[in-house]
Design a binder for these strands. Structure first.
Lengths: 229, 229
DNA sequence: CCGTATTTGTCCGTATGTATG
DNA sequence: ACATACATACGGACAAATACG
C-alpha cells in the first residue's frame, strides 16, 4: 500500500474555516492566560465538554495541543492540569527570553528606518507621561504595545512566536504578578537606552541593551521571590 | 457544581505509564525527523491508524500535538501534512538558534568546572582526529554529542527544549541536508574558540563566540541556497 | 484494606460537510 | 453536476486506573 501519492498542500484559497479543536484551544488558552483557570487547576473533560457543548474528542485534541505549548500538564489516568511554573523555572525562562529579546534588538538595528524610530520615540514620550501621572494601567498597556512593536519590527516570525510562548509561560508563575506592577519610570530609562542603541546602528550594543533590559526584569523578579522565601 | 476542589498534581509516584497518544507521537516524530515521512507528505488518518493498530482518536491527538510543535501543518478538511520549512524560514530559525546558543555559552561560563572543561577538550581532540581521517560519519556524531553536552551543561531545561525544537525544525528544510555535511575541520576551529572563551570566564566573550558559531553555519547555509537560486 | 464511584483512555459506528476527479 | 474519498465531529460503549468513603 504505497502512501506515495505526494499531495502537496496548496497554499491558495486560504479560507479561515476554523476547526472546533482550534476554537476550543484558543478559548482554553484565553481562560488560562487571564487567570480564569489558575495554575494547578484541573481541566475536567466531561465538565468542559458539556460547558462548551462539544464532545470529548475535540476537547482532548485541544488539551494535547496546549500540552505541547507548555500551558498544561497531562498526567496519565489522572487528568489535565494548568501548568504551574515554579520560580526556578521562571528564572530559566527569563534568561531565554533575554537572549531572544537581545536578538530582536540586533535585528532591529539592521532594519530600522526613520518612521520606526519616530514611533519608538513616541512610545517613550507616552510612557513618560503615563509614569508622571502614576497611570499604572496606561503604562502597562503602552509597555506591552512597545514590546510588541519591537518584536514585530524584526520581521522574524519564529522569533515572535517563541517570544510570545515564553511570555505566556511566565504568566503561569504565581509570583510573577507582583513584578509586572513594579518598574515604571525605572524601566523607561532602560527603554531609552534601547532605542538609542538601535538608532546608533551598532548591532552588538543594541543586542546587549535589549538583553540587559530583560535581565533586569529577571533581577527584580528574583529579589521579590527571595524576599518571600 | 463548584470546580473549586483544587486538586494539585502530586509530583510523587511518577511511573512512566505511557499513553498511546504519546507513543504514536514519538513514532511519528521519529518518522518525520529521519526523513521516512518527507516534508509536504501527507499523514493519512485511517491509513496510519490501521498501520499502527490504533483508532483515530489517539492518532488525531498526536498530530495536533505535532502541529503545536511545528512539525506538521493541519489544513482544515484537507488533512495533515509534514511541514516544509522554506529557506527563508530556515534563516529566521538560524538567528533564533544563534541567540539561544549564545545564551548557552554565557551560562556555561558561570557553571563550568575542570571536569567539564576536560571533557570539552576531549571532544575537540576526537573531532580533530575524525576530521584528519575524513571520517564524516564519526565527526557528525561527535559534533552532535558535543553540542548536546554544551546545551545540557547549562542546566536550563527551557533552553534545551527550545534549542532542540529549533534544530528539529531545521531538519524540515530540504536544502538543509547539504549543509550538515559541510564544515568539518573548519568548524572545529570555531569549537576551540568557544571552549577557550568559556575557559576564560568571560561571559560576554563566550556568548559572542557561541552566537557567531551558529551564525557562520547560517552563512554557509545561505550561500548554498543562493547558489541554487 | 476493600468496594464503589468517578474519570480517563480507547475503540467503534455513524452522520455531515468538504474537497477532488 | 455527480460520485467518491476523506476529514470532522458526535455519541455510545467498555476496560482500566484512580479517587473516595
Amino acid at each position: 500500500m504505497a502512501l506515495s501519492s505526494a499531495d502537496r498542500p496548496s497554499d491558495q484559497s486560504s479560507r479561515p474555516a476554523r476547526l472546533l479543536t482550534g476554537s476550543v484551544e484558543d478559548e482554553l488558552e484565553h481562560l488560562i492566560l487571564t487567570g480564569a483557570l489558575r495554575p494547578g487547576e484541573r481541566l475536567h473533560e466531561i465538565q468542559l465538554s458539556t460547558r462548551f457543548g462539544i464532545s470529548r474528542g475535540p476537547l482532548r485534541e485541544a488539551t494535547r495541543s496546549l500540552q505541547a505549548k507548555g500551558l498544561v500538564e497531562v498526567i496519565p489516568n489522572r487528568g489535565v492540569f494548568v501548568r504551574s511554573v515554579t520560580p526556578g523555572e521562571a528564572l530559566e525562562i527569563y534568561d531565554v527570553r533575554a537572549a531572544i529579546f537581545g536578538l530582536a534588538g540586533r535585528l532591529l538595528t539592521d532594519l530600522v528606518n526613520d518612521t520606526m524610530l519616530s514611533r519608538m520615540h513616541a512610545f517613550l514620550e507616552d510612557m513618560d507621561a503615563a509614569a508622571a501621572k502614576n497611570d499604572f494601567e496606561g503604562y502597562y498597556r503602552l509597555n506591552l504595545a512597545f514590546h510588541d512593536f519591537l518584536i514585530l519590527g524584526t520581521r522574524n516570525k519564529t522569533l515572535a512566536e517563541e517570544y510570545n510562548t515564553l511570555v505566556n509561560k511566565l504568566h503561569l508563575c504565581r509570583a510573577q504578578s507582583l513584578v509586572t506592577a513594579g518598574g515604571l519610570s525605572v524601566s523607561n530609562h532602560e527603554h531609552r537606552e534601547m532605542v538609542d542603541s538601535v538608532a546608533s546602528g551598532n548591532r552588538e550594543r543594541a543586542q546587549a541593551a535589549f538583553f540587559r533590559h530583560v535581565e533586569r526584569s529577571k533581577d527584580r523578579f528574583r529579589s521579590t521571590v527571595t524576599d518571600l522565601a
